[in-house]
Design a protein around this nucleic acid. Sequence first.
DNA 1: CTGAAAGCGCTAACAA
DNA 2: TTGTTAGCGCTTTCAG
Lengths: 335, 335
Amino acid sequence: MVTMGDVARAAGVSPMTVSHVVNDHPHVKESTRAKVLEVMDRLDYRVNVAARNLRTGRTGTIGLAVPEVDRPYFGQLAARIITAAAKYNLRVAIEQTGASRENELDALSLSRNRLYDGLILSTVGLGPADTDLLKVDYPVVILGERIFDGPVDHVAMPNVNGACAATSHLIERGCRRIVMVDGQVSGEVDVSGLRLTGYRQALERSGIVFDPSLVVNIEKFTMQSGGEVARALVASRKGFDGVFCVTDTVAIGVLRGLADAGVRVPSRVKVIGFDNIDEGAFTVPSLSSIDPDHERMARTAVSLLVRRIEGGVAGKPRREFVSKFSVVERESTHV
Amino acid sequence: MVTMGDVARAAGVSPMTVSHVVNDHPHVKESTRAKVLEVMDRLDYRVNVAARNLRTGRTGTIGLAVPEVDRPYFGQLAARIITAAAKYNLRVAIEQTGASRENELDALSLSRNRLYDGLILSTVGLGPADTDLLKVDYPVVILGERIFDGPVDHVAMPNVNGACAATSHLIERGCRRIVMVDGQVSGEVDVSGLRLTGYRQALERSGIVFDPSLVVNIEKFTMQSGGEVARALVASRKGFDGVFCVTDTVAIGVLRGLADAGVRVPSRVKVIGFDNIDEGAFTVPSLSSIDPDHERMARTAVSLLVRRIEGGVAGKPRREFVSKFSVVERESTHV
DNA sequence: CTGAAAGCGCTAACAA
DNA sequence: TTGTTAGCGCTTTCAG
């Protein structure tokens, strides 16, 4: 292993000068710099990142805790976060929490161990009751809606308005008995609760009476459960002409389930999702959705985190609300 | 920041003893251990991973370089690798290479900087010509088929046999003019080349003459290109009754493109993909595919890497061939 | 079973 | 513009 000392000796300078060259410090004579660079190259010198970390107290890596990277939504989120972090020269290590509360807390403690300079937590398992556990003294940004008045920075998205727009979109296209396939609602500050609120708002505005029997709650946001729920709905002969799904992943399952049950989309039932994942453009029929500008959410989350990393953890928690969203109309809601 | 020294002082022992407790070394009196643990807990002590890294020369993190995590195949691969690595107490940092040769080389140099204990490289951009660049002195495992006789460990999958089985599957179901939607073939050792070989083998075995005009080469393995290619194929009036796609992602696009062109699947054209990604079970029609046991490939890759990390980089490169695969029949190839 | 000594490779702070 | 000093927090080695 070639060290700075080795380079210094070979170049006839002090290790400090090598350090200056490596870190692009300005006040180095051009000829010295050239000499050092030449030797570095010749000896194939590599900085030892661990040593630098120890000295500077930074690791250059942030953690990203998501339930599972193989779910399209989180995969696409991760890709965006990685890209955004790269702009700040930060690498991203991914922790899979499997949506479990314990694993989310584990991810927190890894940063506490100074493995990561900060953590972006796309939380699903933690709830308002865990607020205290988030009172940590290192940079954390929460992505999502579980904890509103937590002690850390937080990026929120237009859940209520988006859900309302999605439901209105169905109503405008003639739907009157609209099913909502939602997750488990615990409190009103989680995704499921907020999107349900948006759904009800839209109904109310159009004078449609809310029918609780049209809300189905699934355990996991998977294509699998979407499929099951759709088949069960058709079998139950409830009578419905529209479905608003809490996420696109679920909606893709619902499309599949309706096809299994021989229900035509969009002629007999219209379907809309939420997230606008890439896959939605390629289903048959293609899936209408709400696009909540995840790109921007990712950028916001990273920049909030970087601000904490650079500026210190102190200061009131900020909540950045990414409010822009758009309705993406595709075949599944055509008239 | 609480250090080992702080804990030692508070517990009335030496830092060394604290270290022993932290690392679960055996020869520590039970009462001493208890005392130290109590103090650690009271002071909320956390090991400083950077310091440990510097001392031990290990980081506890491996790198995973993939083109993009938001493509279903790589997302699912990443999830499996992360899970497999967790069993060895290794974290996974993901580098997105965007399928570019330069970025793949960058990922290599990050490990060279001792940021990672080793690297799993799902390479797309590197080719046999880059063999020399892989002659590095730290643990690397290549996942995929680009470089056969490279200087590093390598996990291969049943590309030829799988592609042959997929094509035979179509032939058995009555297809005679089978399109292959393939990637760019450069050399014969990349995925596209190997799967093309399998395709031709199957044709030959059934006495079907290979028609080069039925092979279409796309730039990128995306749903997008799959869709475009399918629409173009129909427009060109080539006449075909089956399509074998180089990956499921492409196949999903092809299904969509055929739907756009009003071509019924499977009644008029049958379609099969490769990879068996989760989404394939939920398209309409659902997608038949080859399942190459990616689970096992991930486990194999991680365990090869761990062997190098623990056992040193020396020793002949191993090629682990994960050969088991299965044909998953779904609606897109029903008779 | 416990501890003293030494140093991993780097850089902040300061001095020349 | 360059160099000196000192030490980040931990663990390897070896001695008690």
